[in-house]
Amino acid sequence: MAVASAENTAVRQASAPAKPKRLVNAWHLVGLLAIFLFAVFPFYWMVATSLKTQAEALASPPIWVFTPNLDNYYSVLFNRDVLSSLINSVIIAVSTTVLAVGLGTPAAYALARFEFKSKEELWFWFITNRMLSPIVVALPIFIMARTLNLIDTHLVLVLVYLTFNLPIVVWICTDQFRGVPRDLDEAARLAGASRFTIFWRIALPLAMPGVAVSAIFSFIFSWNELLYALVLTRNTARTAPVAATSFMSGYDLPWGEIMATGTLIVLPVIVFALIVSKHLVQGLTMGAVK
């Protein structure tokens, strides 16, 4: 199982022979602190820069000690209209996640439970979509959306994000449904429940961990996505990552504002990801360990 690590480690520590080797421990500690610094530093630097004035941000050598101020946040949220981009991102990411889970879980249930011809090919087709480069779909979608007057709408991104969200939901949830015993479904069927009731009332609640993991992934991937959003939106439906790149013209870049926008995009996801980190890691490593 992917992340039973906490429990496993506890067991291991209890049974491992206790040999207090100070030197080994010191290196272990240095290594762990190095991991922490490596992982956190670029993020820290972004946040720090977002709290600097333009002069402080462009100082050479870089300034490490300064008085933080929130001017950049005020300026991007209200003058640069990043606020409405963030709202767009929330609307799009939530809608596409709900849609992906709604469409994907019944499909995953069918792939895990039913026997039918070319089931494997179908499953494979779902997974292939996950590996598809967005650029392959972005070219034709752009022309189609232009013809249908869907450029710069929430709808087009909600739909197009299904190309990667739906495969994630199908992939993770198929695995999850397979882990739920069939006996309950079969007993319910004998008791006269309809197939949909069985799926909705019995299998789905038991598969909730997998559903949650796939929803988390759908949300994060949609929230972070740039290529489709860049190609398919202009102003009204502009998402936050597009807003962040929109400052990148001209010679003197407003680094404080750029990093403030970056922080507004990344910080909520990190807080959310830390809260659900156990599930997140479980989803990431899914399929890696069997």
């Binding site: 762990l32 670029p42 993020f43 972004m46 972070n224 740039l226 962040a244 790149t245 990093m259």
Partner: peptide, 21 residues
Amino acid sequence: LARLSLVIPLATAPAVAGLIG
């Protein structure tokens, strides 16, 4: 602490990672 810190790069939007770079 180290394991939780690993979540930060993973959760960072690649577009923002490029800006940080």
